[in-house]
Write a protein that binds this DNA or RNA. Structure first.
Lengths: 156, 156
DNA sequence: ACCTCAAACAGAATATAATTCTATGGAACT
DNA sequence: AGTTCCATAGAATTATATTCTGTTTGAGGT
């Protein structure tokens, strides 16, 4: 795909914040008729600029209101140890996000559980059984100030 | 709203991972006909279990592939200083997420920019102009291992 | 055990939006 | 100026969302 123009970026920005608009509504927002807007959105999907559409749930209402960022240091830094760690992490549903990071620790996890009691349980039973882990450090989320759920769109 | 049953949770889980299914498809997945599924989803939206629907974009393709977690310590801990900090952060588009956390630092930011050069620019110009900030510490994301974009659904 | 009521359901009917198609207009190029 | 290409508007069509109706199921009460 060539380059995205102003309208494409505007559409991405809108859809990233709320994808429930009808094509007609989108058309009005970018001052076009529905058909070119439809084609543009399909092209953005086809070319991977839009990966997928998802529903954002209310964690509190689902009794999943307790978020923790957990730093992880591995015991050793073999390729196989790292690979095993990743594999284990993928299967733990409380781990919502996982990043390989620079610095004092090797990984940063975002964990979501019901409450502190469940976090304790998570650390002992779930992380406790991941043998590649050397040490951990927890940062508890006291409140979520801002969340735009992913990449922003540069308006250049 | 009373309590969510098995089917509601299943619908939430499906929609959280991919909200592009038609009502008919959802119906097949949960072994019901389209109308009750439609009503259930509408109820989940109306009662706030589903907050909204969004498009997930490809940060790499949008030249926004460089993620950093930035720890922030405030100069002081007045209510007014904290409030001002939050206000400033809300207006910085590179800051995708912001949490008030426990521990050595006061806040954790997730920042997304084009590359290291732009991060440097972000730190000097954007964070640099937020006067309430005392010190910062950056954890660079070398790779994203896992991301499920928000709350998981407990399958209890 | 029977009755009553309310809720959830399947299936049909309708409304609305998505998607496709066709023809037009303008910009770039020759 | 003529030609080609591409994005567009608007109409036509198709698919889906949404509403409606009648039926079934299950809980609570007698």
């Amino acid at each position: 795909m060539e380059l995205l123009d102003e309208t494409d970026l505007k559409l991405l920005k809108i859809l990233h914040e709320n994808s429930s608009y009808t094509t007609k509504e989108l058309a009005q927002m970018v001052n076009l008729s529905p058909s070119p807007v439809f084609e543009r959105v399909k092209k953005l999907e086809k070319n991977g600029y839009i990966k997928k559409y998802i529903a954002i749930l209310d964690a509190e209402k689902l009794n999943q209101g307790f978020a923790v960022f957990t730093n992880i240091k591995l015991k050793q830094h073999d390729r196989s140890i790292g690979h095993k760690f990743v594999e284990d992490i993928m299967n733990i549903e409380e781990v919502i996000e996982c990043y390989n990071i620079s610095g004092d620790y090797d990984f940063l996890l975002k964990v979501i559980v019901r409450d502190m009691k469940h976090y304790q349980d998570f650390v002992f039973n779930k992380l406790g059984s991941v043998k590649s882990i050397g040490s951990t450090h927890s940062m508890f989320v006291m409140s979520e100030i801002k969340n735009s759920y992913g990449a922003g769109v540069p308006l250049n």
